[in-house]
């Protein structure tokens, strides 16, 4: 099975995020970029599929600081190829990312056709839409989201994707190949790759690169402003006797849609 894994680097929220002077974009100077968590799961699921059915796993990612290390780690984990899309400006949002990926996949040699395209179901910056469904539309491929498991009966024309529903219920879908799947979580937590192995891979393997196509349109959404919500340093205290407090909690729960 020939599997493409699409990986994006996104800002790490462990660090304080700052907004630039224009008030509309993130200040990229102090950002730490890390692989989108669900993309990591997509890679894990791809590797599990490869282990079960053979085939090839190729990771494709738009260039970003620290990306090389991440891609070498992907190779060390067992990916066969890692392709860096070079010459890209940092963009925010799933729409531009999907267009970029679609163009690269269709123009760069040796990527398509693939049986499966796996990527994280969402990233925390998919403001104007999720990347995976947009990509599926652009490539005219079927799409399933919130996938937690993919199984195949050997090399066939379909796979079974397990999608997560509420209350711990899951459902199986038959999906025609090729397809795009938005991975919510791999069957098991992404594997650990020791530092020594990554270093060895850095010596023995190389990253490929694909040029970014010129003029990928940005999203259509107009951002008026970005702001940091005041972090609540301390809980807002509710006072009163137990019955009063209970009443207040009920209101909060109702307002939050928990009740």
């Amino acid at each position: 099975m020939n599997i493409l894994v699409l990986l994006r680097m996104i800002p790490d929220v462990v660090e304080e995020l700052e907004i630039s002077n224009d008030g509309k974009t993130l200040d990229r100077e102090f950002l730490r970029l890390i692989p989108n968590e669900t993309d990591d799961h997509a890679l894990e699921e791809a590797l599990l599929l490869k282990e079960r059915h053979g085939g090839k796993v190729t990771v494709v990612a738009p260039d970003a600081p620290e990306l090389d290390d991440v891609l070498f780690a992907c190779l060390a984990k067992g990916a066969d190829r890692a392709v860096k899309i070079s010459g890209v400006e940092p963009v925010m949002g799933g729409r531009a990312a999907a267009r970029l990926m679609a163009q690269v996949l269709t123009t760069a040699p040796g990527l398509l056709p693939a049986d499966l395209i796996l990527t994280g179901v969402q990233s925390t910056e998919d403001l104007d839409g999720l990347m995976a469904p947009i990509l599926s539309h652009l490539l005219q491929l079927p799409y399933v989201d919130n996938v937690t498991q993919v199984t195949a009966d050997g090399p066939g024309k379909t796979v079974t994707a397990v999608k997560e529903f509420p209350s711990a219920v899951r459902a199986e879908f038959d999906v025609q190949l090729p397809a795009v799947l938005g991975i919510q979580a791999a069957e098991k937590p992404p594997r650990y790759v020791p530092v020594a192995k990554v270093r060895a891979v850095m010596k023995s393997q190389h990253l490929e690169s694909a040029a970014a196509p010129a003029g990928v349109e940005a999203g259509q959404l107009e951002i008026l402003q970005m702001a940091k919500p005041e972090p609540a340093e301390h809980a807002e205290m509710l006072a009163g006797d137990p019955a009063q407090v209970a009443g207040k909690i009920c209101e909060i729960l109702a307002a939050r849609g928990v009740l």
């Binding site: 020791p194 530092v195 020594a196 192995k197 990554v198 270093r199």
Partner: peptide, 8 residues
């Protein structure tokens, strides 16, 4: 047992 990380 993660010697590589210790090195780093």
């Amino acid at each position: 047992g993660e010697e590589g990380l210790f090195d780093v």
